[in-house]
């Protein structure tokens, strides 16, 4: 019995999968506080499915990027459950989980998480097999789109923050831009679990979020150091 959990952004996605069958799945997009609701949701879903903690055989978590706090909550829960129950932990890119919404698209899939000031956490995956074409990163989104545009690929965009960047995407990619319908913009934990099948088992203690961005304090310090060395 595999438990999958993704709390990397405001949506909460949890699923229980056994023998390639989704037993129960929940996706919320209620801008709720994951610290408060993630564990109650896990507890409730397991209760509904009549699954005891001891029945779990694997934990799968979204590793980021996304909201720092959100990613940490999901990963802390996943790490602690996996370590406590002595079962394997695997993690999957939170962007790839979003990209899975566009699986089958004949072109590239671009998951977008807004990161303010014109930046985004983003990546490019091949729609046919979800292979990474441009790895997960924090980018100035305009620059990223311009780079993508040079290849001339059709691109399917997905993610809850899509509308924020839609005008820019249309401006740069024109007819090459496609937008996932609303129902395919949320992370789904069943996709997360499916994607984890291709991932290596993690060493639980040393599994950390993939923030894809240093902290502001570190960035400021680096700027100061640079100023001094000049």
């Amino acid at each position: 019995m595999i438990l999958g959990i993704d709390t990397s952004n405001s949506p909460l996605a949890i699923a229980l999968v056994r023998d390639d069958t989704v037993l129960i799945e929940e996706t919320q997009n209620l801008k709720i506080n994951h610290s408060l609701t993630a564990m109650p949701a896990v507890e409730e879903l397991m209760k509904k499915a009549k699954i005891a903690p001891g029945d779990l055989t694997r934990i799968v978590a979204a590793e980021g990027p996304g909201s720092y706090t959100g990613v940490r909550i999901g990963l802390t829960i996943a790490k602690t459950l996996a370590w406590s129950l002595k079962i394997p932990l695997t993690t999957v890119s939170s962007l790839k989980v979003l990209a899975a919404n566009g699986q089958g698209f004949n072109g590239m899939v671009c998951p977008v998480m807004d990161a303010r000031r014109g930046t985004a956490f983003t990546a490019l995956y091949d729609g046919r097999n979800l292979e990474t074409v441009i790895s997960d990163r924090h980018s100035d989104f305009k620059t990223f789109l311009e780079q993508v545009h040079t290849h001339g690929w059709p691109v399917l965009f997905t993610g809850i923050d899509l509308e924020i960047h839609r005008p820019l995407i249309e401006e740069i990619l024109g007819d090459l831009a496609h937008f996932a319908p609303f129902q395919n913009r949320l992370p789904r934990a069943s996709n997360l679990i499916a994607l984890a099948a291709g991932e290596e088992v993690k060493e639980v203690h040393h599994t950390v979020p993939e923030y894809r961005r240093i902290t502001e304090a570190e960035a400021n310090l680096a700027k100061m150091d640079e100023g001094q060395s000049r």
């Binding site: 564990m39 903690p53 602690t80 459950l81 406590s84």
Partner: peptide
């Protein structure tokens, strides 16, 4: 808090 919750849940 989340580690404590997960640990408590795992072991009842």
């Amino acid at each position: 808090v989340n580690a404590a919750k997960a640990f408590a849940f795992a072991h009842g």
